[in-house]
């Protein structure tokens, strides 16, 4: 699958925005100003980016508790996201959702999710809607290795297959369900193997490799759009931070993360390959880096200065009407 320069720069911008966003939230969390439970996506950027680059606002995704990357890749406003994480009124969800529940339905982002395995049934619904309406849209459900064991995931794979829904199930296997290794929690070597039991393609990709994700996701999405039914893609990857901010991660080998950061970082590898192939120039990337740096700085400053919701907001939007 050929990537043009614009797409390559978009991919770089998206991955780098996610990375800088997450690194900054990590730093800000330590100051105590960011409330609640925060789960960071750093290290896994190639997956959200490689998948969502094939989608536009009419296509739907549903995400996990580790959802910032999916939001950014799907086009959610970064300033609105940051304000949401700070619990401010101008946040994408008016300060009512927070990190675990960021959503922007106008961008086709059906929400991060506090419930493990929450997304797969929802994307079956989005796929059913697309199929029923005949609008050529697809739906992508992200789920972690932990969530892949949930009954909801297995039931959804079956349903999507028997109904031939335009759905793609992306398992982000970062090796840990919270603090428990996938080697302990999961009976198969490759989660993608499970696809055969549901009579759909199951493909393993290196989640650190943007190009591989982009290619495999592109084929699956094209197939789904064409009425060819669902696909299960397992992306093997590593997360750079803990399960949640505050996780001491003593369950991980001491040099585990550092090795990946040094040798397999998705952004470094993308930049090196894109530059050496002549697809983009170093200067292009440097310019994007500056933009992102300004954007995130601005987002944090705006978030911190933004007003909090007020008492009258407490009972709004419980219903459409009541």
């Amino acid at each position: 699958m050929q990537l043009n320069k614009d797409d390559a720069l978009r991919a770089y911008r998206t991955m780098k925005t996610i990375r800088v966003f997450e690194d900054r939230v990590h730093v800000e969390f330590e100051t105590g100003e960011v409330p609640g439970f925060v789960h960071l996506y750093a290290g896994e950027e190639a997956i959200a980016t490689g998948v969502c680059l094939h989608l536009d606002d009419g296509d739907r995704i549903a995400s996990t508790h580790r959802g910032h990357g999916h939001c950014i890749a799907k086009g959610c406003d970064v300033r609105g996201m940051m304000a949401e994480i700070y619990g401010r009124k101008p946040g994408l969800c008016a300060g009512k959702g927070g990190s675990m529940h960021i959503a922007d339905l106008t961008k086709g982002m059906m929400g991060a999710n506090g419930i493990v395995g929450g997304a797969p049934p929802l994307v079956c619904g989005a796929g059913l809607a697309a199929k029923t309406l005949g609008n050529g849209r697809v739906a992508v459900g992200f789920v972690g290795d932990g969530g892949s064991n949930q009954g909801t995931t297995h039931e959804s794979l079956n349903l999507a297959s028997v109904w031939q829904l335009p759905c793609i199930f992306v398992v982000e296997n970062n090796g840990y369900a919270e603090a428990t290794s996938v080697k302990y929690s999961t009976a198969c070597d490759d989660l993608a193997d499970r696809a055969s039991g549901f009579n759909m393609p199951g493909i393993v990709v290196d989640g650190h490799d943007f190009f591989e994700v982009y290619e495999v996701a592109g084929e699956a999405i094209d197939r789904a759009r064409a009425g060819g039914g669902p696909t299960l893609i397992e992306c093997k990857v590593n997360r750079y931070y803990g399960h949640f901010e505050g996780d001491a991660q003593t369950y991980r080998a001491p040099d585990e993360v550092e090795n990946v950061r040094q040798n397999r970082d998705c952004i470094d590898n993308f930049a090196a390959r894109a530059v050496s192939a002549g697809l983009v120039q170093e200067d292009d990337l440097a310019s994007i880096d500056r933009d992102i740096s300004d954007l995130i700085e601005d987002a944090v400053n705006l978030a911190k200065a933004a007003p909090k919701p007020e008492a009258e907001d407490l009972l709004t939007d419980v219903y459409v009407s009541y």
Binding site: E178, S185, Y251, A253
Partner: peptide, 20 residues
């Protein structure tokens, strides 16, 4: 329960969490 020990199957320490 989930991670009531923590670290099961991983390369680091066992009893890493003892619950969240």
């Amino acid at each position: 329960g989930e991670d009531i020990v923590g670290g099961s199957g991983a390369d680091g320490e066992m009893d890493a969490w003892g619950g969240p």
